[in-house]
Simulated scan of single mutants.
Amino acid sequence: MGIPGLKPYRYHPIQEWGEPLVPIPGDQFTLTLPHPYAKLGAPYGNYSPFSLRQSVLIKLLQAQDYLQQIKPGWRLNIFDGYRPNTVQVFMVEYTYQELLKIQPEIAPTDLLAQVYQIWAVPSDEPATPPPHSTGAAVDLTLIDEYGQAVDMGSPIDECSPRSLPDYYPRESPYAIHRNLLHQTMIHAGFVRHPEEWWHFSWGDQLWAWVTGAPNAHYGRVEEN
């Protein structure tokens, strides 16, 4: 029996490659500092949110190189990478409580549905890891040649329809920026989350489900 609320891709088979987590180099990317979840007190322990599986980082470097070919001086701005399941639990609860403050009249089940538009359902089951808990998913945006954040039309993690990749008309500057990020990432083999303009994966269950690969390469990183 499946876990309620899980997206269909979370049941895709996993054949673990066993690659280590490696740090995302801050001299080659822009990192969002201080990290927003760690600042809230999310329990990362000895892990860094600015880390990914080894092959995923290689793909991310390829995406960065491509971006700088078509937009000299621009950079990928890394918002979040690896996320332990304990952090997933923390952020789901935090987001729920924040929504409850501004929508106290909404039924709990409806509030939770809003939360799960953005946040994957936490799971301790090895077969159904949250994407970021595999070290194969990354949340990111763009920095222009002047070092300024590019306006994408909504902030990362906003629980609203504006988070949908195709929310804005194609001729909108926001849509153009989102399409540039998408073009950059798919050039390196990533796939975009269908409901989040900022979320991209390579090698996890979402990637396998979208591309038709028989297995995902990465399951949950075992937390020490």
Rank of each mutant, 00 (worst) to 15 (best):
M1H: 13
G2R: 14
G5C: 08
K7C: 11
P8S: 12
P8M: 08
Y11N: 12
H12K: 12
I14P: 04
Q15N: 13
W17Q: 13
W17G: 06
L21Q: 00
V22H: 08
P25I: 08
D27R: 12
Q28V: 14
P34K: 13
P34D: 12
Y37E: 15
K39T: 15
K39F: 14
L40E: 11
P43E: 11
P43S: 11
G45A: 08
N46H: 14
N46Q: 15
S48Y: 04
P49V: 10
F50Y: 10
L52K: 06
V56C: 04
V56E: 00
V56T: 05
K59N: 11
L60N: 01
L61H: 04
D65P: 00
D65H: 02
L67E: 01
K71H: 13
K71Y: 10
K71C: 13
P72Q: 08
G73F: 05
F79H: 04
D80K: 07
D80I: 09
Y82T: 04
R83W: 07
T86A: 15
Q88F: 05
V92T: 15
E93Q: 15
L100W: 13
L100F: 14
E105I: 12
T109R: 13
L111V: 05
L111Q: 05
L111Y: 01
L112D: 06
A113K: 15
Y116W: 15
Q117T: 13
Q117W: 14
A120P: 07
A120F: 07
S123P: 03
D124C: 09
P126D: 10
P126R: 00
P130L: 08
P131M: 06
A136V: 03
A137L: 13
L140S: 02
I143C: 05
D144P: 02
Y146M: 06
V150M: 09
V150R: 04
M152L: 02
G153R: 02
S154L: 09
P155W: 10
I156Q: 03
I156F: 06
D157A: 09
E158S: 03
C159K: 09
P165K: 03
P165R: 03
Y167V: 12
P169A: 06
P169T: 04
P169D: 02
R170D: 05
Y174T: 04
A175S: 11
I176K: 13
H177G: 07
H177A: 14
L180G: 00
L181H: 00
H182P: 00
M185I: 12
H187I: 04
H187S: 02
A188L: 09
F190E: 00
V191D: 07
V191H: 03
H193D: 15
P194H: 06
E195V: 08
W198F: 15
W198T: 05
H199F: 12
W202M: 09
W202H: 10
G203L: 02
Q205L: 00
W207E: 05
W207M: 07
V210T: 15
T211W: 00
N215R: 13
H217S: 11
H217V: 08
R220P: 07
R220Y: 11
R220I: 14
V221M: 01
